[in-house]
């Protein structure tokens, strides 16, 4: 199902603004743009948009201030685009009311995926955030997972990784996608980061790579989570 989204892009860089508008429009979305924060905030508050993509480096006012202005009167989901990928910046943005964020340089696919994720999370009749794959049950909001009723002791990244795979159970997911979505490092990141976390997940799910049950990898393609008892 193609989801048509009304997107407002607030971005001062002309090339990014026009390219992004084009890419998102190609995907069937309704896109409007603004090159100034104040004008963008006014547009955002019209209520015509499903989501706002807000660049932080705007010439008139600071992006975080624009975000606070939007948030003070509107609940429209906001995805912030920032060049600074440090933790303190992320915390600052989430505190200011961002629903999600992408680090520059991002691709249109990556941004669209984040928009979809934000809309899923903020939908009024939000789907159940309990993900069940066979004996594996994950409460995504509570960050709690159980296997056959036994609580799984997972690190934050392991939980995110398993939740991402569980939400796409049975589908092959590329490691690049995992780096982009779970680690938010679409083009960088250590090659073996995903592999080593998958190995740990296997241990905790009680299997090995030689005898996989839940996690199946295919070299050069990706990885998928399956219910071994299905």
């Amino acid at each position: 199902m193609v989801l048509v989204v009304a997107v407002l892009v607030i971005e001062d860089d002309l090339r990014i603004r026009s390219s992004l508008a084009e890419r998102l429009a190609e995907r069937g979305h309704d896109v409007e743009t603004s090159d100034r924060a104040m004008a963008g905030v006014e547009l955002a508050l019209t209520g015509r948009f499903d989501v706002v993509v807000l660049d932080l480096g705007l010439p008139d006012i600071d992006g975080a201030d624009a975000l606070r202005m939007i948030r003070s009167v509107s609940t429209v989901p906001v995805v912030v685009a920032t060049a600074r990928d440090d933790e303190s910046e992320v915390i600052r943005l989430l505190d200011a009311g961002a629903d999600d964020y992408v680090f520059k340089p991002y691709s249109a696919d990556h941004l669209e995926a984040r928009i979809r994720a934000v809309l899923r999370r903020t939908a009024p009749a939000s789907e159940d955030r309990i993900v069940v794959v066979g004996a594996l049950m994950m409460d995504v909001d509570a960050h709690h997972a159980t296997l056959a009723g036994e609580s799984l002791d997972l690190t934050a990244k392991e939980f995110e990784l398993l939740a991402y795979l569980a939400e796409r159970a049975g589908k092959m997911v590329s490691k690049r996608e995992l780096l982009a979505e779970v680690w938010r490092q679409p083009y960088g990141g250590a090659d073996k980061t995903v592999d080593v976390h998958l190995s740990w997940l296997r241990r905790k799910l009680g299997e090995t790579a030689a005898d996989p049950r839940w996690i199946h990898t295919r070299r050069g393609v990706g990885v998928k989570l399956v219910d071994p008892d299905a």
Binding site: D13, R15, L20, G57, A83, P105, S107, A108
Partner: peptide, 17 residues
């Protein structure tokens, strides 16, 4: 380097087109 990421985003979007 942070500022370089803006033109890099622009280039990426163009290449993807």
């Amino acid at each position: 380097s942070h500022r370089l990421r803006t033109p890099l985003t622009s280039v990426r979007l163009d290449i993807e087109a």
